[in-house]
């Protein structure tokens, strides 16, 4: 099934990343990333810590401003506009916010708004960002919370929930914006082992429904099952881009093989 490895034709890509660089001061975190993602595609990004995976994800919705290179969302450059002279400058905040609203994000540390109930967390952005009427937002929130199995926790505060429950609410909150793409930044890394499964189960459901997903993860079993493509990053570059069978059975690069060896006890059968 190596066809999945071939990047989709430019015309059909929902995300196109073009020579992306990111510096933090003198630290060169992303060193020229190129990637295309087709609508509905599930991509898992794996690699050692410090390889730039999270930064890559945060550049995709402009939580980090790329130092160089461009992310195209549906063919439109994200966060920058080119002046007639050819110089690029930051796009207006309104345009950036509008594009961000099309990309959902789930964080390692959940980041549920602590002063709001679960229900308020989910209806907040639909009401105040999308401008949905209250009744519609409420119905949407109820449906989404039911979907992640937490309808009974609607009026609890985040601090009353387990980590796994919080992360499922965070997924519902992101879905409430009806995004075209979902970004997951190590969604299970902060969870107790016995709570990982419930979150991955919600994510599998989302994948089955055809959502475009980019998942930074250390859950190799999940990556092997769900991903159409595995991106292996190290030191700010994409070292290997393979179908999961290829990546886990016979990785093309030495570094990926070394990385996978550390997971041998958890690798998929």
């Amino acid at each position: 099934m190596d066809s999945a490895v071939n990047p989709p034709a430019s015309g059909s890509a929902i995300i196109r990343i073009n020579n992306l660089h990111k510096w933090f001061g003198r630290l060169h975190v992303l060193r020229g990333i190129n990637l295309e993602v087709a609508p509905g595609e599930k991509i898992c990004v794996v690699g050692p810590s410090g390889s730039g995976k999270s930064t890559l994800l945060r550049c995709l919705n402009f939580l980090e401003e790329p130092s160089d290179g461009t992310v195209f969302l549906d063919g439109r450059p994200m966060g920058f506009m080119t002046e007639p002279g050819g110089r690029r400058r930051r796009d207006s905040e309104t345009n950036i916010n509008r594009m961000r609203a099309r990309v959902g994000m789930v964080f390692q540390s959940f980041n549920l708004w602590t002063h709001m109930t679960v229900f308020r967390n989910v209806v907040e952005a639909p009401i105040y960002v999308r401008g949905l009427p209250r009744e519609k937002a409420h119905a949407l929130a109820e449906a989404l919370l039911r979907r992640v199995g937490l309808a009974d926790k609607m009026h609890a505060y985040p601090s009353q929930l387990s980590g796994g429950q919080q992360q499922r609410v965070a997924i519902a909150r992101a879905l409430a914006m009806e995004p075209e793409i979902m970004l997951f930044d190590e969604p299970t890394s902060a969870l107790d082992p016995e709570l990982v499964g419930e979150v991955l189960e919600v994510m599998r459901g989302l994948a089955r429904d055809g959502m475009t997903m980019l998942v930074v993860t250390h859950e190799m079993g999940f990556a092997a099952d769900v991903a159409d493509r595995i991106i292996f990053m190290d030191q700010g570059v994409i070292v290997e881009e393979s179908a999961p069978e290829t990546f886990f059975e016979r990785p093309k690069s030495e570094r990926a093989a070394q990385f996978l060896a550390k997971f041998s006890s958890r690798a998929p059968a």
């Binding site: 919705n61 939580l63 905040e93 309104t94 916010n97 509008r98 961000r100 609203a101 099309r102 990309v103 959902g104 994000m105 964080f107 540390s109 980041n111 549920l112 708004w113 602590t114 907040e124 952005a125 105040y128 960002v129 999308r130 965070a170 909150r173 992101a174 914006m177």
Partner: peptide, 22 residues
């Protein structure tokens, strides 16, 4: 915490709205 604001911005909130609501 920074993450509270990240979540607001990721949801498409403007800076002003994130300040006011979060």
């Amino acid at each position: 915490p920074r993450g509270q604001i990240d979540a607001a911005r990721a949801a498409g909130m403007s800076h002003a709205l994130a300040m006011r609501r979060i």
